[in-house]
Simulated assay, not measured.
Amino acid sequence: MWKGHRPPNIRRDYWDTMCDQWATENFRHRSRIVAENRTKMPEATLHTSGSISFGRQKRKMVKSHIFNL
């Protein structure tokens, strides 16, 4: 299903290999488990700092001695 829809910046042979891997039962089983785990703890998958920039967050951490340079 995916093989005919590769992104233009990925080589066809790489894309086909990834599609073959994604179609295996082992990969699909692990994917289901990981998806279930993500729904159990959605806050654990966030890679953001909200409206606070990473630079500002770093300054706050340095100031509070959590992060020393």
Rank of each mutant, 00 (worst) to 15 (best):
M1C: 01
M1Q: 04
M1T: 00
M1S: 05
W2Q: 00
W2P: 13
W2E: 14
W2S: 03
K3V: 06
K3N: 05
K3G: 02
K3T: 07
K3Y: 01
H5M: 10
H5V: 06
H5W: 13
R6A: 00
R6F: 00
R6L: 02
R6Y: 00
P7W: 05
P8M: 03
P8D: 06
P8W: 05
P8G: 07
N9P: 04
N9I: 06
N9S: 08
I10W: 04
I10G: 00
I10V: 15
I10S: 05
I10P: 07
R11G: 03
R11L: 01
R12M: 03
D13E: 15
Y14V: 14
Y14K: 06
Y14Q: 11
T17L: 11
T17N: 06
T17K: 11
T17A: 15
M18R: 08
M18D: 01
M18W: 15
C19P: 10
D20A: 10
Q21T: 13
W22Y: 10
W22Q: 00
A23R: 09
T24R: 14
N26Y: 00
N26S: 12
N26H: 04
N26R: 05
F27C: 07
F27V: 07
F27L: 05
F27I: 02
F27T: 04
R28V: 08
R28G: 01
R28D: 00
H29A: 09
R30W: 06
S31Q: 12
R32N: 01
R32K: 09
R32Y: 02
R32C: 01
I33T: 11
I33S: 05
V34Y: 05
A35C: 01
A35E: 07
E36C: 00
E36T: 03
E36L: 10
N37P: 03
N37V: 10
N37A: 14
R38C: 13
R38L: 13
R38S: 11
T39Y: 01
T39S: 01
T39I: 04
M41D: 14
P42R: 12
E43D: 13
E43T: 05
A44R: 14
A44D: 11
T45V: 08
T45A: 14
T45D: 09
T45Q: 11
L46H: 07
L46V: 09
L46W: 08
H47L: 07
H47S: 04
H47F: 14
T48F: 04
S49W: 08
S49Y: 06
S49N: 08
S49M: 13
G50I: 06
G50S: 07
G50H: 08
G50Q: 03
S51F: 09
S51Q: 14
S51H: 13
S51Y: 02
S51A: 14
I52P: 06
I52G: 02
I52V: 06
I52H: 02
S53H: 11
S53F: 09
S53L: 13
F54S: 12
F54Q: 12
G55T: 15
Q57I: 02
Q57L: 11
Q57K: 15
K58S: 12
R59G: 13
K60D: 10
M61W: 13
V62C: 04
V62S: 08
V62M: 15
K63R: 06
K63H: 08
K63T: 11
S64A: 15
S64K: 10
S64N: 14
H65F: 03
I66L: 14
I66E: 10
F67I: 01
F67V: 06
F67C: 07
F67R: 07
F67S: 12
N68M: 07
N68Y: 05
L69Y: 04
L69W: 00
L69P: 15
